[in-house]
Amino acid sequence: MRLRTALLIVAVLCGCWGLLHAQKPFREYDTVEGHAESAIPPDANVPHEWTRARLMYRDYTGFGRFGFRRGGGSWTIDYPRSDRHLLYGVKRLTRIDSRAVEQPVALDNSDDVYNWPTLYAVEVGHWELNSEEAAQLRDFLNRGGFLMVDDFHANAEWGVFLEGIKQVFPDREIVDLPKAEPIFHTLYDLDDKYQIPGAQFLRSGLTYEKDESGRPEHWRGIYDDKGRIVVAICHNMDLGDAWEWSDEPEYPAEWANMAYRIAMNYFVYDLTH
C-alpha cells in the first residue's frame, strides 16, 4: 500500500513537472472589455505553425492585481476580439501558418512563455513587473523571443512602461526606428506612417489620448547586440483597437489598414531576424 502511494505521488509530481515544461493548451480568459468578447472559432484547437502570444501582466493600479492570471486587468484590453481579427488577417495577408486564436502567457517562472516566441503586450502604460518577471522576460528576449508593445499614451504611461522595461534591459537604449529600418519593409514598404488612434476617436474626435504629449506617434525599439529589434514599441497609438474595430464601418479603414500592415511587417520581421 505504501509503495502504491509513493508511486502515485511520483506519478503526480512527474505530471506536474511535465505540465510546467510543456506547451500549455489554448485557454480563453475573461476580458475587461465586454465589447471585446468574441466567439471561439471552431478551429481554435487545430494546431498550426505559429500564433501570437498575449502577455498577461499585473496592473500597477491594482486593477486585477490578485487575479490577473485568471483574466481581467489591463492585459485583456481589446482581448480577444482584436487578437482573432488580427490572426485572421495574418492568415489572409501572409503565408504564415497562423492559428485562429491567440495564446495568453504569463511570466510565471514556468517554461510556457518560451513556447511562444512572438509576444504582444497591450496597455503597457499600466503594467507592473516584479524582478522575477522582468528577469524571465529578459531571458525570453535573449533566447530569441520578440515583444511588441502597443496602446499606451502620453508621458505618464510612457513612464510606467519605462519603469518596467528598464528592469528587463537596464542598459539597453530605446531608440526611434529610422524609416529605412527593415521592420518597415519586410512585407509592405511603410515609409509614410501615421498615428493610429483608438476607437475613442469615434466618441471624442481626437486622434490622440490623455494629453498633448499623446501625440505624435513614436515608432521605437530596443536592439540586441546583433542589431536586431527585440522589443518593438508602438507609443501613442492604438493598433489593438484598430484590429479590434476593423470590422466597424465607422472606424476609418485607412487606420485599420495601416495597423494590419504594421503588424504583418512586425511579425515577418520577427520571423526573419
Binding site: 505559429w50 503565408r95 530569441g144 511579425f267 520571423l271 531576424h273
Partner: peptide
Amino acid sequence: GEPRWEFKFLKR
C-alpha cells in the same frame, strides 16, 4: 515557403 520560427532560429 512560409515565415516560421524554424526559419528564424536556423538563421540565427
